[in-house]
Design a protein around this nucleic acid. Structure first.
Lengths: 190, 190, 190, 190
DNA sequence: AATGAATGAGAGTTCATTCAT
DNA sequence: AATGAATGAACTCTCATTCAT
């Protein structure tokens, strides 16, 4: 039941937004009553928090796996992180969209847990960029923080328009994005 | 007074979000009463719509000026569009942020006016990309639509983190972004 | 202007009801502003009161003319009162409807002026009935107050359905009503 | 609780009118909160609609019973319908008054349900009148529709003045009204 | 004679939440 | 594990009225 509540609410939050979706909307979707909701969640915000946690924990975990694989160079790591983010739209429904759009509906207390994780995700990418610079894979004349924010922007923005059943697959889009980024930040001898 | 209401509400919407900001919040900020608000706006959504209109009309106008300047090549046009978007954060407060974040709080009727303009802005960029491909400035092996969405992602995402009084200026960030993009999509002889 | 406000408001009160019609509705109808309204009337209720006064004063006056005409017998007087009421729908727009429907929107003070006039109108009819009984025109075995209320019910109710441009004229309806009433209350030798 | 809300609101609507009675007034009367009201009714209009439905369904049902009783002649049927209407003031509180006075506060959608029932009630009376004409009980020289509207006027108007604890009983008034009507529309050999 | 900006009280309605069962 | 009645605070919006100009 708890899972079903989360799934239904993700669907509703995506379409109507968190604030505009009432507990009533959620339980109506499942044919149960509000009491049931409060048996599993102590507040509406706790539900939102759980969606956030699930999502960020998932992508952080996959990211760590990618980064810690010493057999991959930094170019490959960047591609795989980008691909993973785009793939998560298919695997995690609209959790990503909700993660980015509804963050300001979390309480101070919840934000204090989520923001460090979100920052960690960003720092992990920045580390890949910096190691690529050190190893000579990437150009050294561009600010690594801004590069990282550019990558995140490109990728995260895709939640606004990417459809898993659209003309291009998540892999194809990831390849184009990686190509754009790499042949910009990579030191040149092409 | 109408201007003051718009300014105050942009500030509040930015911090608390549109749905979480009440009319009471807005008028308290100005020391007037709710009646005053409804003297100038017929609904809360009309206010949101006006913010949207002001913003999109502004950036569309500036974009048209950039694109129609025949003395500029497409590389320059891209840079100027990116720069204009980042600059608008300074000049138009948080209208940009509200524009992107609160779009789903518009009514169907309002969306029907805004979406075509937003699409036009995107198509205008896509046209610059395509003309750059035709003219031989840009690579021809990457999907122009995806390139455009990548550029928009990078740039629009900056409303989430860019601070006009941060360590880098809007111009510097624009130059880095342009550099990343260009030396990826530009046909190479480096 | 004052006349125009009264006319417009009668039209609006008829369709939407007094409470549901705002001052704004009235002045919009005339293309003026609310200030204008308050130049002529000190409150919304004063306007309603004026409509009431105009109507009741009119029908009271006509009624007195009918009653005081010594050349008419009581049968004729009854017919003429009924006819006058039905005719007033044509001549006084929907004042009658408003008079009956919106009376409870008057203040205590206004009611204290209107109710005695309304009662006087009723007593005048009751007097005709009673004189008809005394003179032998009407049956003496029926309660004159109830007869009067029956006549008023029949006649006043017509404001709910009578249309001046309908299949029967105000005169024809009056004749049928009088016929029904008379050949019930008239002592018999038919 | 739902029943208690209906009862309290009928009392309040009678005295202050529907538009002038607020939800707050209703719940104050019962010592509950506005939330409770909206637990049982989705809108103020739904409450008004329920009062209308209850009343018209009741009188329609009783009317059908009267009409379908083949042992009664049409004179008797008329009397019984009139008596039933007057009796309903006692049995249904002021539902009748509200039914007639507040009909224009119903939405289009609600009216579309109520008007046909109200018309059916009227047509049923008209049918009795017409059958009385065919059977020779009633005069044939008077328009049956107007007769019917006259009967309804007399009877419905009584909601404005009839008090169950007044000098005459509902039965006595019904008898006087029937007497007035019958000896007007009945073919004569008196 | 008329405007237009502003008020302030109150309207109907929504909703997250509680709690006895 | 789940219900259903009830709360209470907040919300958007309406409106008769005022008043300086």
């Amino acid at each position: 039941m708890k899972e079903k509540i989360i799934e239904a609410s993700i669907r509703l939050f995506e379409n109507k937004g968190y604030s505009e979706t009432s507990i009533q909307d959620i339980v109506d979707e499942l044919g149960v009553t509000k009491g049931t909701f409060y048996y599993y969640f102590s507040s509406k915000e706790e539900l939102l928090m759980e969606i956030h946690q699930n999502y960020i924990d998932h992508i952080l975990k996959v990211q760590e796996d990618i980064i810690s694989d010493e057999s991959k160079n930094n170019r490959t790591k960047l591609f795989e992180i980008i691909y993973m983010l785009l793939r998560s739209i298919k695997t995690h429904g609209s959790s990503a969209l909700i993660f980015f759009r509804e963050m300001n509906n979390l309480s101070e207390a919840s934000l204090a847990e989520i923001i460090p994780k979100r920052d960690k995700f960003r720092f992990n990418i920045e580390k890949v960029v910096q190691e690529g610079i050190s190893s000579g894979e990437f150009r050294s004349d561009l600010n690594p923080s801004i590069i990282t924010l550019g990558i995140l922007g490109m990728t995260n923005w895709s939640y606004k328009w990417f459809k898993p059943d659209g003309p291009l697959s998540d892999k194809e889009v990831s390849e184009i994005y990686t190509e754009i980024i790499l042949h910009g930040i990579e030191k040149e001898e092409r």
